[in-house]
Design a binder for these strands. Structure first.
Lengths: 132, 132
DNA sequence: TTCCTTTATCACGATATAGTGATATATTAT
DNA sequence: ATAATATATCACTATATCGTGATAAAGGAA
């Protein structure tokens, strides 16, 4: 369906969402881990994840209070795999991707711990204020 | 580059632009022919074509006052071919595509003639007003 | 030249989207 | 029950985008 392709294109027309998909190609992540990597507030990240999920690109698995997001294994929208394949063919030396990957490694090393999303959001906001 | 992929995704995140690309997969068309098929004003069509061109998906060839648009043969952005391939794998029975194809055949049959874009735009606007 | 045409671009209004803070819900621990 | 946490959703602002009419630029015919 034309509509499905447009929905997926729209989902991938935002830099933040493409970054999320590329991160999830490596391993699953929860919302607060993505906050840390992306440097964005909890509601922002959650909204982006909703859009990607609605397009069928990613799926969620709840464990306790955490929501773990990963690439969709559902093959309903067969075109989505082609879109993912395009993203996976991106060269690894892209500065954005490299930077995210560095943070991903750090976040993975720490593992899942209580991070207090409200506090974390505040720290993130401060960082970006300092950066200008 | 990540930026290129996002630019192409954004270009294909609009229904009108996807319709244009699918039409141009069949044969080249000028702006006023696309107006007729899409049922949109000249400035709108021209703007969409500019976005698709900026993304490297299509290219233009001027002949006299006419600008003929077709799929880009430039291989600079190698991912664009993958996007085009996704669109070309769409089933032909999609209602939107079928309708456009019908109009494409009619427009092709008529060929290139002076159509007076301002008048044409007025007629198009009237049609859409009648349709609601 | 003057007139008519096609196309690109500008300015505008209406709508859509990104990012945010506050709030609501749900889970877990005490 | 109460407290702390993670997440989703709502309401809001700032910004971006779509579609349009008017205008400008450029080619072709009289």
């Amino acid at each position: 369906m034309l509509k499905d392709i447009i929905k997926t294109s729209k989902a991938l027309s935002d830099e933040t969402r493409v970054r999320i998909v590329i991160l999830l190609m490596r391993n699953e992540l929860c919302v607060c881990q993505l906050m840390e990597i992306l440097g964005m507030g909890q509601s922002t990240v959650s909204k982006h994840l909703g859009i990607l999920r609605n397009a069928g690109l990613i799926e969620v698995e709840k464990r306790g209070t955490w929501s773990f997001y990963g690439l969709s294994r559902d093959k309903a929208n067969k075109h989505n795999l082609d879109f993912i394949r395009i993203l996976s063919s991106l060269p690894k030396n892209d500065p954005f991707i490299q930077n995210d990957e560095k943070k991903l490694i750090k976040v993975n090393k720490r593992g899942i711990t209580f991070c207090n999303t409200i506090e974390l959001g505040r720290r993130i906001r401060e960082r970006s204020n300092h950066a200008g």
